[in-house]
């Protein structure tokens, strides 16, 4: 599997990653060689094999919907890049 510059630009957009123009070709080459590596899988017949998500096939535990934590907004927002009046600030989204 070989990826070109357009593929890399599309993937980088989906992943919301800014990639410098001069680095795109190198990413295309590296990603292509990784995909060549994983393509070995395609030679294996896995028709009737159930995909494995958890080693012990454990299922998601459920719990009661109870309040267990106190409000810690101020403390948790101390690590935020930009906060005003208890709200996270981002660039203007709606004019």
């Amino acid at each position: 599997m070989s990826l070109d510059r357009t593929d890399v630009e599309k993937i980088a957009h989906l992943a919301r990653l800014n990639i410098a123009e001069q680095d795109i070709q190198e990413y295309a080459d590296n990603l292509s060689s990784i995909l060549d590596l994983v393509d070995q899988m395609q030679a294996v017949d896995t028709q009737d094999i159930t995909p494995m998500a958890h080693p012990m096939d454990a299922i998601q535990r459920l719990r009661l919907d109870e309040v267990t934590e106190a409000d810690q907004r101020d403390r948790l927002q101390t690590v935020a890049p930009s906060v005003e009046a208890g709200l996270f600030q981002v660039p203007k989204v709606i004019e």
């Binding site: 990826l3 890399v8 992943a15 919301r16 990653l17 990413y27 990784i34 995909l35």
Partner: peptide, 18 residues
């Protein structure tokens, strides 16, 4: 994300996204 992540992390994010 482009400035905060290094190259190997960006590579793996892109492989996974693809």
């Amino acid at each position: 994300r482009g400035e905060g992540f290094g190259e190997e992390v960006k590579r793996r994010i892109m492989v996974g996204t693809y």
